[in-house]
């Protein structure tokens, strides 16, 4: 347990420190890289609690796909950092106020919050299986594809609509552009191909 708690403090410290660096670093690309570091350590924390599937999915989805696209966009931005920091002091009071309000709300909510294992066991739709009995994926799948199948499908549908919407908004079909039609190319009859020997300087 000593080793586990040592690792907990390591991951937790690095997560918080890199989360701070996300907002503190001057270069937005560095911010994204620190965000990735924070994701990694959050995955480490998941791993420590035994949620290995969540940990790896966090890495695959957030670090492997979302953050790549994030980095992709941030790298393309043409931002003048000096200009961005100019209004910093001007907005500092109002920013600090909002931060303070959020912090107080969080403390009020989380201060009285405690997980009571007995209540959880009583209200859970099915008993939480022991880690030794079943694997993460089986336990998640059991719940997700039976009890919560409707919500699961619904969230999938929402994502699909969002994706179709994004494509519809950005797709502009230009009729004057020459396009490659692979099916047409493959279906061409080789006998129709005209082989001509062209004299140099004359063309066909």
């Amino acid at each position: 347990m000593v080793v586990a708690s040592l690792f907990f403090y390591l991951f937790a410290t690095v997560t918080v420190a890199s989360a701070f660096m996300v907002i503190a670093s001057r270069n937005p690309v560095h911010s994204v890289l620190f965000l990735i570091l924070a994701f990694f350590n959050a995955a480490g924390l998941f791993m420590l609690t035994g949620a290995e599937f969540l940990a790896l999915i966090l890495i695959v989805v957030y670090v492997g796909a979302v953050a790549v696209l994030f980095l992709f966009v941030v790298m393309m931005l043409d931002v003048d950092f000096a200009e961005m920091r100019e209004g910093f002091l001007q907005y500092l009071p109002i920013g600090a106020l909002i931060g303070l309000v959020l912090a107080i709300e969080l403390i009020l909510v989380l201060g009285s919050f405690a997980i009571d294992t007995e209540t959880v066991a009583a209200t859970a739709v099915q008993p939480i299986p022991d880690l030794a009995e079943t694997s993460n994926i089986k336990a998640l799948g059991d719940l997700l594809y039976t009890k919560y199948i409707f919500f699961f499908q619904l969230s999938g549908l929402i994502l699909l609509v969002a994706m179709v919407g994004a494509i519809v908004l950005t797709l502009s079909h230009r009729p004057d552009v020459k396009r490659q039609n692979v099916a047409e190319q493959v279906a061409r009859d080789p006998n129709d191909v005209v082989l001509a020997s062209v004299k140099s300087g004359e063309g066909i």
């Binding site: 599937f53 790896l56 999915i57 890495i59 695959v60």
Partner: peptide, 11 residues
Amino acid sequence: LGLLFVFAISS
């Protein structure tokens, strides 16, 4: 979750 781990690393 070895297979998922390899997939995560390769991504």
